[in-house]
């Protein structure tokens, strides 16, 4: 009886390498989501740097449902808010600005007001440094 003696192949088989690679590519392509990873930052007051904001001294921006703005109890379009603030900021760069959104106001309106204030350096050449967004609990506790 004769046995065939095959030579042992000492190379790693790489023919399927590309297939495996493409499977991995497809996996990563499917699972990759180009998620929104940007946003507008809002620093919360820390214990050591939160002077009490005086209601009388500050500019109050109220946002009513539907996005109507009441700045110091007068209606004002969003585009004019920074112009209104400019002379006040020139006198006092630390002028506090308070954003108060009505509880039924859509969140998007509040964000656009905040965004507008953050654009102050480009639009009026000075920063609105002191923006506070009191929550309902804080208003109940400290204001009335």
């Amino acid at each position: 009886m004769k046995f065939k003696r095959g030579t042992v192949n000492d190379e790693i088989p790489t023919a399927s390498m590309a297939d495996i690679a493409f499977l991995l590519i497809i996996y990563f392509m499917v699972t990759t989501t180009f998620a929104a990873t940007r946003g507008i930052d809002f620093s919360l007051p820390q214990e050591d740097d939160s002077p009490l904001v005086d209601k009388e001294e500050s500019v109050l921006i109220e946002i009513q449902p539907g996005g109507v703005l009441m700045v110091d109890n007068k209606p004002l379009p969003l585009d004019n808010v920074l112009e209104y603030l400019k002379p006040k900021l020139e006198r006092n760069p630390m002028k506090p600005v308070i954003i108060r959104a009505n509880e039924m106001t859509e969140y998007g309106h509040m964000v656009s007001v905040f965004d507008e204030l953050r654009q102050a350096p480009e639009k009026i050449g000075m920063e609105v440094k002191n923006v506070s967004i009191p929550t309902q609990r804080e208003i109940n506790m400290f204001w009335y």
Partner: peptide
């Protein structure tokens, strides 16, 4: 509605969070 956001921001303030990204 803003009241939901208000509640969350209030919780974060009470928890002494440093910064929120919207």
């Amino acid at each position: 509605p803003y009241r939901y956001v208000d509640g969350v921001i209030d919780s974060l303030k009470q928890a002494k969070a440093r910064v929120i990204y919207l």
